[in-house]
Each structure stands twice: as structure tokens, then as C-alpha cells.
Amino acid sequence: MSPLVRIRVLSVLAVVVLWELLALSGAGADEFFPHLWTLFAAFGDVLTAEFAGDVGITLFQLFWGSAAGIVVGLAAGLLIGTRPLARETVEPLLVYLSTVPKIVLYPVFLLFLSVGTESKIAMAAFGAFFPVVLHTLGAVSDVRPVWLNAARLLQTGRWQRMRHVYVPAMAPTMYAGVRLGIATAIIGTVMAESKAADAGVGYRVIFYYSQYQIPQMYAVLLLVFLFSVLVAVGLDRLGRALRLGGGHRSEQEISL
């Protein structure tokens, strides 16, 4: 076991021990920090066919919202980033807009798209869009001028340069934006479901809270956490398999 893995395992164990110590501290603390055995027992109440339906709804909204946000973010980033004037004009505005908490705009989505699935998809797409487009704009600096000069000497067209120069050079940074965009979309989807919904994982968290079923509420939150970790690990391994771990690609990898 590597030192890094040991540190991660010890960190998890430390959190578990601290949680149980808080539950044992008395003064009603176990109401807010249920004992571990109570928390594990709560999974039996949570893992039902009804909850499976909630998971399916959330995954549906997350998938389509993330896909829309990523596609639009990549297209907009490439379109704007390869045009210096457009980038100087639009990028500051996107940076400022990205700092706005996305949840405050959810009532606007409700106004136009109602409480149904569409507003949750829009929330996920909006969350994924900004990390993707900003990383794509930033990735323009990964394109070395010598590659562009070589492409122009070969009299390549704009789309050829985009395909064979810009995208290969920018791919690692753009992929980092995709990873962050998916993480943001998960947060946006669950938060939207917790605000106005009658189904979904976020709705289930608020339902258990409203019923003061705290162990069940924590059980759902732990499942969301585990899902997010699995997604992050999967994306990390996919990036390594595709050699998108980051950094500049060599000149030999930029094929004209």
C-alpha cells in the first residue's frame, strides 16, 4: 500500500472515529450524529424500489443536463477561444457570471420550465457549462504558435487546424473542465431536486429531513457521496487511458 493510499484510508477512519465520538458525547448529540450501527441500519429503510425510482430520475436529469452543458461549453469555448477579439470581449463576462451561485437562478428555470424534469436538466446543464467553457478558453494558451505557423505554411483550412492542432493541444485542459463540469452538474441536480420536486435523490433527502428521519437522510447523503467518488475515479481512469492527464503534448503528437 502506497503512502498516499494509507493517508487516504487513515483519513476516512479518522472521520468515522470522530463521528462515533460525537455520537457518544451525550447531550442529544446522537440525534444529529447517529451511531454508526443506526446509520448502517438506515440503509435498509432507504434502499427500496421507490428509492430506485428516485435514482433513475436523478440519473436521467444528470445525464442529459451534463451532456448539454458539456457540448455547448466545448463548442462555445472553441468558437470564442480561437478568435482573439471575441475572447477578450466575452471571457471576462463568463468569469463574472461563473461566480454567481447557480442555485439562485433556479427560480428563473422554474418560471420558464416548471417544476418538472426540464428545470432540473437546465440546472445541471447550467452548472456544467461554465467549468467546461472556461477551461476550454484557458486551453487556448496550450496551443503553441509554432504549430499554428506550421499549419498555415501547409495551407490548412480553419477546420483542419481546429481538428489537428487546436483540439489535440487543448484536450487535456478541456477534459479537466469536463470532469469539473460533471461534478458541478451533480451538485446542481441534487440541489434543484431538494428545492422543488416530487421525486429524485435530492427530494428524498429533504423528505427524510422533514420527517426527522436523520439516519435515513444521512444514508442518502452517503450514497450521493459514494456515487460522486465513483464518477470521479472513473473519469480519472478514463483520462489516463486516453492520455489526458494534463500538460502539453509533444510536437510529434500534433498531426497535421
Rank of each mutant, 00 (worst) to 15 (best):
A241P: 05
P168W: 11
S66P: 15
D30E: 13
R83V: 15
S114E: 06
F32Y: 13
V95M: 10
L39I: 09
L105S: 05
V132H: 02
L242Y: 09
Y96L: 15
P215F: 03
P107D: 10
L221M: 08
I182P: 09
A219F: 07
F126P: 09
A219H: 02
Q160D: 14
P34V: 05
T189P: 14
P172E: 10
L97V: 04
E251K: 11
E31Q: 13
L39K: 08
S119Y: 02
Y175L: 13
V220P: 05
A122L: 08
E31Y: 09
P34R: 01
L21Q: 05
I70N: 05
F207K: 14
M1E: 07
L78R: 02
W19P: 02
A197T: 06
P145F: 00
F33L: 04
A49E: 01
Q160M: 10
F40T: 13
R8A: 14
R249A: 06
G26I: 06
V229L: 14
M217F: 05
L244G: 03
L59Q: 05
I214A: 01
S98A: 15
G239V: 12
V95N: 01
R243N: 04
A49Y: 06
R158E: 15
A29M: 15
L62H: 07
E91Q: 13
R179A: 09
L137A: 03
P145Y: 00
A68L: 15
T184Q: 11
I121A: 03
I7W: 14
I186E: 05
Y203I: 00
V46L: 11
L105R: 04
R163H: 10
Q61E: 14
G28Y: 08
R8C: 14
R8I: 14
P101L: 08
F130V: 06
A183V: 00
D54L: 09
A183T: 03
R179W: 09
F51G: 10
G81C: 04
W19R: 08
H248L: 09
V132K: 00
T99Y: 11
L105K: 07
D54N: 15
L4V: 15
G81H: 03
D142T: 09
R6L: 15
F227Y: 04
A151K: 01
I103T: 11
W64Q: 07
E251H: 15
L134N: 02
A139D: 09
G247W: 08
L59D: 06
Y203R: 05
I121Q: 00
F112G: 00
V140M: 13
I214F: 07
Q213E: 12
G239S: 12
F130W: 08
S11N: 13
A197M: 06
W159T: 11
S119T: 05
L242P: 11
R163M: 13
V100A: 14
L105H: 07
G77F: 01
F225L: 09
E88Y: 12
A29R: 14
F51E: 08
A124V: 08
Y212V: 15
A125P: 14
G245T: 12
A196M: 11
A169H: 03
T48Q: 08
V9N: 13
